[in-house]
Design a binder for these strands. Structure first.
Lengths: 202, 202
DNA sequence: ACCTGAACACCGTTCAAGT
DNA sequence: ACCTGAACACCGTTCAAGT
């Protein structure tokens, strides 16, 4: 994990891990089936750190938002972990615990187990996806902002007129704002879903 | 692209591409700066195929849903492309055209350019994320379904009681349902956003 | 200009051999 | 049981040399 944080996902090779641990690469295979398993373990551990319990005095939407923010913040602080996240690694014990928690949250809010699971999963998809697609981009860096604006403005005004026209607004939009809008929309959508399924309940 | 579809992302090596093209690996670097550039070009081409125009007689939400479904379907038919998708590769001409289209859609629906960009970006994040995190999982396969149910049911009932309790419902939930719920929620949330920003408009 | 052959510095994984 | 050294079959990239 130290290696991953310090030198990034690309440096997480069996040779480097072995060196960090002071043994040969071959010995690692005594403790871990292959590199894939090592990655799974690392990801699951990172998830455990990220999933603390939200404040008790809050409704489901506030709790969901709180957890989503915390999870995202943790992943952004450890970009190496984020870049390792794939669909196949949701099976570790800590990932499952997180899923169990989210499921309880949405069932408590009034959704059926199936809908609750879909909602929880969608939320996780969005959080992880939004980190994943903004890796290596620091939105707060002014140089980055200028670069984005120049990029949009220099495009072909015939092909993508709106990008050119609104280059300033687009450059201004950081990944934080983007995340906030998406999260708010998703939760508002869940609320609509809850109200609708309330109506059709027997 | 043929190589990618036939043998997957892992087989997309410079040596294999060279062999497919009937030349040496070294010659590839005459046409492409490095492997990264090759990937970017492939991804952008795939996006162009996926982004056809939705039917004219539809409101913004129907159009957005139509495009999202089409994009997702295309990515699922070409898993190799999906697994190559990263945040850094949204800069190809076709990706930008898609972004321009989505921006127009949400501005037309009544959002400010900034909010429209955030909405478009969130939607893309969700679509790509949901494909990404379900790679290699065929939800319709009954064996897969049984396997999921067994997986949930065999967990520790103390640690993750809800997963065990609702194992059947969770196993039933495929990635299609999951996507549908998330997409609907996101669009419903955008609608709320539009109504609110209508009210506060000068 | 474009291509080749050969090399460089890396990977993940395996396995007989040691203790 | 755990570790080592050495190898195997791969990577992406570079570069002098050819045409």
């Amino acid at each position: 994990m130290a290696l991953l944080d310090a030198r990034g996902a690309a440096a997480l090779t069996m040779r480097n891990v072995a060196e960090e641990l002071g043994c040969t690469q071959a010995s690692l295979y005594r403790h871990v089936r292959n590199r894939e398993e090592l990655v799974t373990l690392l990801v699951d551990r990172a998830i455990s750190v990220a999933s603390a319990a939200p404040p008790e005095d809050a409704d489901w939407a506030e709790k969901a938002a709180w957890s989503a923010h915390r999870f995202r913040a943790h992943l952004r602080r450890h970009p190496g972990v984020a870049s390792l996240l794939r669909g196949t690694e949701r099976l570790g014990p800590n990932s499952l615990a997180g899923m169990n928690y989210a499921l309880g949250l949405f069932i408590g809010a009034g959704l059926s187990p199936k809908l609750a699971a879909a909602a929880a999963s969608s939320l996780a998809t969005f959080v992880i996806g939004s980190v994943h697609f903004n890796l290596g981009v620091d939105a707060r860096d002014p140089a980055e902002k200028r670069h984005r604006r120049r990029l949009y403005r220099s495009r072909d005004a015939e092909a993508v007129p709106l990008l050119v026209q609104h280059a300033d607004a687009l450059a201004e939009l950081g990944s934080d704002d983007e995340f906030e809008v998406g999260l708010t929309a998703l939760l508002a959508g869940f609320r609509v879903l809850i109200e609708n399924s309330d109506g059709t309940r027997d």
